[in-house]
């Protein structure tokens, strides 16, 4: 495992834990898209079914279990424990526009027409667009709390670092997975506009707010 990959995983973990802590400490999930969080729970579940079929390493197993556990805890906090603070009126992205096309694409473009492989492919495609309900919510309300911005930044950095990891692996190992690379590129591009706002505003101590 190279450094890009490891830092990518850490960044992903940081994002997930940051969001959990934010909700827990403030006792509120205002400004957080429950729909994006459900999509991420679906992504992890579909992708990590190989926990039951394929052992890779202790690191791999632990990270998968932690991602899944944190993801489901987040969904539970939003839709059950702190339901009263959930901003459903602003969380109006139509998730079927993401789930249906990515599911169809997973059936059409995959490495292997087997249930586990199709689910893995679906999870890769769905992950690349799963943040859209959250970004839509930020654009709708015109602002995001600083901690939510940090969460989004860490989540965007994760896939960006994976792109460098894939370049590294292609160069030194001759390994590449076109499905993951193309989806990872799409995913990273979706964060670009946010990266710009984060660097020009949040890092200068301002709250992220969009021009009206």
């Amino acid at each position: 495992m190279n450094l890009f990959r490891f830092l990518g995983d850490l960044s992903h973990l940081l994002a997930i834990i940051l969001l959990l802590l934010k909700i827990w400490k403030s006792r509120s999930c205002a400004g957080i898209s429950g729909k994006s969080q459900v999509l991420f729970a679906v992504v992890f579940t579909a992708r990590y079914l190989d926990l039951f079929t394929n052992y890779i390493s202790l690191y791999n197993t632990c990270m998968k279990v932690v991602y899944i556990a944190c993801s489901f805890t987040t969904v539970w906090l939003i839709y059950s424990k702190f339901k009263a603070t959930y901003d459903g009126n602003h969380d109006t992205f139509r998730v079927e526009f993401l789930v249906v096309p990515t599911a169809i694409l997973a059936f059409l473009v995959n490495h292997d027409f087997t249930p586990l492989e199709i689910l893995w492919t679906f999870s890769i495609y769905l992950e690349s667009v799963a943040i859209l309900p959250q970004l839509f919510m930020v654009s709708k309300t015109g602002e995001a709390e600083t901690i939510t911005s940090h969460y989004l930044f860490a989540l965007g950095v994760y896939r960006t670092l994976y792109l460098f990891n894939w370049i590294w692996r292609y160069h030194f190992e001759g390994f590449f997975d076109l499905i993951a690379i193309v989806a990872g590129l799409v995913q990273t591009v979706l964060y670009c506009d946010f990266f710009y706002l984060y660097i020009t505003k949040v890092l200068k101590g301002k709250k992220l707010s969009l021009p009206a």
Binding site: N54, Y67, H111, D112, N165, L178
Partner: peptide, 10 residues
């Protein structure tokens, strides 16, 4: 190459 293989990435 780009084909189905054990997934070591997260």
């Amino acid at each position: 190459g780009s084909e189905s293989k054990p997934k070591d990435e997260l």
